[in-house]
């Protein structure tokens, strides 16, 4: 099976680098597309803006979505994904600093598949990424 793309929606370059490092340490070798704000993520998924002309029949295996994003925030991205026929079943893992109950509840009620709070301790983060990689990249049978 050809490895599918992982869409990482992350505006903090440090977090981006650390996330990629965590993938590498977990031997996750999928291609990672990074969108640096909510609107760029939507462009990629719907083949608009800078991603105009992209073959939108190819969808990422999983979207790792930060909530605090410039332009269009994570919850709004999630809402639009779920409202669109093409993307409404796309696995979305919310990956964020917040553990506010409100964010957790909002994310799940908008149809997030999983909610992971980024731990400060990098070792714990690597462990979390290992789990999500195992589940969403290996075990989960994607509907897309």
């Amino acid at each position: 099976m050809r490895n599918k793309v992982i869409l990482l929606v992350e505006d903090n370059p440090d977090d981006e680098l650390l996330t990629l490092r965590a993938f590498k340490k977990n031997n996750i070798v999928n291609e990672v597309v990074v969108a640096r704000d909510g609107s760029e993520a939507l462009d990629y998924l719907f083949g608009t803006g800078t991603y105009a002309g992209r073959d939108v029949s190819v969808m990422p295996q999983v979207v790792l979505l930060d909530l605090r994003l410039p332009k269009v925030n994570g919850l709004e991205v999630l809402r639009r994904l779920r409202a669109n026929e093409r993307t409404k079943l796309l696995p979305v893992v919310v990956l964020t600093s917040s553990d506010e109950e409100r964010d957790v509840v909002d994310s799940y009620s908008l149809g997030a598949n999983s909610y992971i709070r980024k731990p400060v301790d990098f070792d714990q983060f690597v462990e979390a990424v290992r789990h999500l990689g195992l589940y969403w990249l290996v075990l989960n049978k994607s509907p897309m």
């Binding site: 903090n12 440090d14 917040s98 506010e100 980024k118 400060v120 990098f122």
Partner: peptide, 22 residues
């Protein structure tokens, strides 16, 4: 405020810890 603390104070810590580990 708490929301922003939760996000913004923790983000640099992650960087410090992550790159120290690296």
């Amino acid at each position: 405020f708490a929301y922003s603390v939760s996000h913004d104070l923790r983000a640099p810590l992650r960087s410090i810890d992550g790159f120290s580990r690296a």
